[in-house]
């Protein structure tokens, strides 16, 4: 562990990490929003209807294990 930490301690300007992180977050956020807003209507409808599709066959029970 010491071997690794020794070199990482040499990183100059590690204090800039928090700022980088904010920038990364903002870009992820903007990208996700951009993607969501320009999503095609049929795709949105398809996705949001996924939980509501039921293809169960009259609730019949066929025991596979026996």
């Amino acid at each position: 562990m010491k071997l690794v930490s020794h070199y990482l301690q040499q990183i100059e300007g590690i204090a800039i990490f928090p700022i980088i992180s904010l920038i990364i977050f903002m870009s992820v956020f903007v990208l996700a929003s951009w993607y969501a807003l320009k999503m095609r209507k049929d795709q949105v409808q398809y996705m949001s209807n996924m939980p509501l599709e039921d293809d169960e066959l009259d609730h019949q029970d066929i025991n596979l294990l026996n």
Partner: peptide, 8 residues
């Protein structure tokens, strides 16, 4: 109980 629910 329906242990194995048939679906298509």
């Amino acid at each position: 109980f329906v242990a194995n629910e048939a679906v298509e």
